[in-house]
Amino acid sequence: MKRNSYKKYLRTHKLPHIWCPGCGHGIILGAALRAMDELELDPYKTVAVTAIGCSARTNAIMNCNTIQTTHGRSLTFASGIKMARPDLTVLLFVGDGDGAAIGGNHLIHAARRNVDLTTILLNNSIYGMTGGQYSPLTPYQKTASTSPYGNLEQDFDVCKLADAAGASYVARGIAHDPRHLSRLIRGGIEHKGFSFIEGISQCPTYYGRRNKFSSPLEIMRWVKERSVRVKPETYNFSQDMDGAIPVGLLSHRNLPEFTDEYRKLVEQLQKGDNA
């Protein structure tokens, strides 16, 4: 692979991006672009769908078909696209508030339906675009502008949620290790079914500043030090990790994919008509 050949998937004339210095979202987008490049995805046959928030700023700078939708609803739009045109590769970039709060219902049902979509959840533990409010993925007791005395709520293990809902490919990577994350995303795109990849990002501007992280790197190191590589053969979602963050391909199974099942139904009905 040529160095930087992934840049053909960038609308370079739309750069620079608008993320804050030190934000991890660009690293995760880079990991996704490298995966697209390795798979040689045709930009004309690829659709990147986002919704609202910092995560939604990924696709305007991507060189493929790109649709930014309403808050939390990207999976519904993407489902319609994939069901109408199963030949298209559909990627989603969602945020932790976007994907796990307002869009949480769509996440579990898209996973259950097992539509062939690859969803990358950029988890920076905060609502960044609106100035740092707590999300369902803000850890317990961490501070945000709407949890000034510390977050009283328990956070989701969003990978466990996706797995329990029926996602047939579930992985977690971190911005500290973009090559590994890129492999996980590539695996998700190759997988036929609903793929869910959590990419742990960092928000130095709101999450870091309020929680006494002195630099973006310090958040990345904090995540890295707690991350433990696991394998799907040995990992199970209910094992006690003692505060560690399981990273890698967490689960992978072959389940009937929705658009395949639908195509078979259409063929069966149309054959019946002709008989």
Partner: peptide, 17 residues
């Protein structure tokens, strides 16, 4: 779909397709 919001979201997606 899982709700009314998803059903119109998918309709819009299918139309763009």
């Amino acid at each position: 779909f899982e709700d009314e919001i998803a059903s119109i979201g998918a309709v819009i997606g299918a139309s763009v397709a």
